[in-house]
Design a protein around this nucleic acid. Structure first.
Lengths: 210, 210, 210, 210
DNA sequence: CATGAATGAGATTTCATTCAT
DNA sequence: AATGAATGAAATCTCATTCAT
């Protein structure tokens, strides 16, 4: 029974976080009311407080989940057959999950929040480190690195990849609603490939993407 | 007198916006109260409402100011003797003005806000267009472009520059307080030069920056 | 089995009341939550409701228990060999039971509650009558009364004893934590003896208390 | 203008405290809502917070007012032509001000609160010291003291007076509504005179009160 | 032009109580 | 008998905005 109870509890927790994520992405942390979240989750306000001590704790929990998502993303990227494909996985990651804007909007809010909330800042910093380390490893072991004549080390390349990745994501929150998920995907792929070519390709002609 | 009144008014407006900017950057739009702003500006709450119809209007006004700042930044970049130097101007722009984090935090908040506020979205989109067009022009006329063998057109290059620029800025809101402005500057310069090399340099050895 | 069940139930009831008493004394009736009580009693919230219809009922039950405590106190006082000793029993009663402040704080809260809760008021009034009658009887039968030249009748003397008793108890909730139980006892004894001397002694020299 | 503003503010503050006092006495600190107070004062909830940072601060403010009331009561007592009359002033003080029960109920609540609220405890302790010192001085200078053969010093007598005073007040919160203010006054006077006789009178026959 | 007192809706959070298991 | 998840009303406190002075 304790197992079932635990499962049930975890489901509830998930359900609440899912609702919160959607609300936060739609309205921002501080414009989303607990009532909004409870309504979206289809439960009462009070129940949320059995799972989270405060609204801030929910934000932190979501930030922690984000960290896990990033970790699993990196694993998937590590499994990719080539560095180019790994980069494609990374650059398109926020285009698939859930609805288009949701994730981007959430992450931008997360950074904004991190700039004034120690607790969130700590988590987001750790996300950044996870990402940087993961990709640096990816690059370090890739055959492309040796061919690269850019003179940049794995660390610098990783940082560039992520800055560009975050930058496109930040800008994507403004892409008009009529841009479909697959169009966004295309755009992201284009950026990823462009960067790959810049970093590792020496033949300009091979750059076959539009 | 009307002229003086006008001047006075504009000063007041500036004074209020200056205070608001600081508060917004410190606490975020929706966690900053009108009282916070009035206190920072050293005036009464009521007076703010003689200059701005609402809080939202202040955000919009600041977004508009941001747009002007970007425009003037682009002018300065256009005056730079070389494309590399232009990129250096662009990448370090948010490191000088006011205190370190202030501007970055504000801009990240602005994007977050834009993702759910039509009015702000409109302005920020126009900022993005301004930037993109400005830099595209910069590149189009630069001698480097012809030498570039990346196969990317001016537009794509401009987008990459800005995505990277926004990405590093977004990440900078998390740089610890003990990172000085000049250190941040250094970091930004490094990124700018790396990108420049990737885009336009064919001699890997020339990449002399650390 | 029904007998055992009943016994069990009574134990439970006692256990709950004991926990409630402690919580109430520590935090006050209306700042103690049912959860606090259930936690202190080591049971679930729901179980409390099998024994008490509501929180108010618990307060009433505790008031009723207090009434019994007072009745038994009076019996003990009646068994005392002299009136002075009876008074000593009465004045020190709240110093022994449980931890020092607990009982005083509870009783003061009980009076506060009684001033706006009919049900509690009824019980507390009855406590007061019990006390008054009991002590009046004690005095009426005591040899001291005849010697007393104060001109006060048993009823008036009883009232004075209790007003003084309640007054010292009310003030004792403020005695700092570093006053030990035995010190409090000393203080109460001193007051009891002083009053006894005032009421019944005609030789000022016999007033041997410190 | 600043003077008028100040006056206005003080009036407001007074008005709010007056309303709060009534509500607190009627319902207790923790059963009175801010809305109750604002309704009783005829203002909005928000306005209360311009004058008091929190509910707790209002309680503290009222406790501080109580302290002043006690100080002024002691001054009046000191002006009384005789010690007996001084005691009469003291014992009847809570019968006149405002409506009958209000003050008593408030003070009992104040003691209850003091038993778990450091801030209030501090104030109430200081009230107790003020009272004790004031009356001890009163007694020390009175001619009765010399005649007293009780063997009690001024300090002990003062404490007895106050314990009795507080005790009768605590008990008065339970006097039924049909007991008029003047009847309560009578009762208090009776107690005061009884005590005076016990303390200072040597002729039992002179005890002329009922 | 300038103030800041005043409003009242709304946000977060708590809690007595119920009820399915 | 016993649990504790669930509810939702209510409490405290905040804040954008208005308006009399």
């Amino acid at each position: 029974m304790s197992e079932k109870t635990l499962t049930l509890s975890l489901d509830r927790r998930e359900q609440i976080l899912e609702a919160a994520m959607t609300c936060f992405a739609e309205c921002g942390f501080h414009q989303t009311s607990m009532h909004d979240i409870s309504a979206k989750a289809g439960i009462s306000v009070g129940l949320i407080y059995r799972y989270f001590k405060s609204k801030e704790e929910m934000i932190a929990a979501l930030a922690a989940e984000h960290k896990k998502d990033i970790a699993s993303l990196l694993e998937r990227a590590a499994d990719a057959p080539s560095l180019l494909e790994a980069m494609e996985v990374i650059f398109t990651s926020h285009c698939c999950a859930r609805s288009p804007h949701i994730l981007s909007a959430f992450v931008v809010d997360l950074f904004a929040e991190a700039s004034r909330n120690r607790r969130v800042a700590k988590i987001v910093r750790s996300v950044m480190r996870t990402k940087a380390a993961g990709v640096a490893a990816l690059i370090a072991r890739s055959p492309e690195l040796k061919k690269a004549k850019s003179g940049l080390d794995a660390q610098a390349i990783a940082e560039m990849i992520f800055a560009l990745n975050d930058g496109t994501m930040m800008r994507s929150v403004l892409s008009p609603a009529n841009v479909s998920v697959s169009q966004q995907r295309e755009g992201q792929l284009k950026v990823a490939r462009s960067l790959w070519h810049l970093l590792f390709s020496h033949t300009s002609h091979g750059n076959g993407h539009r």
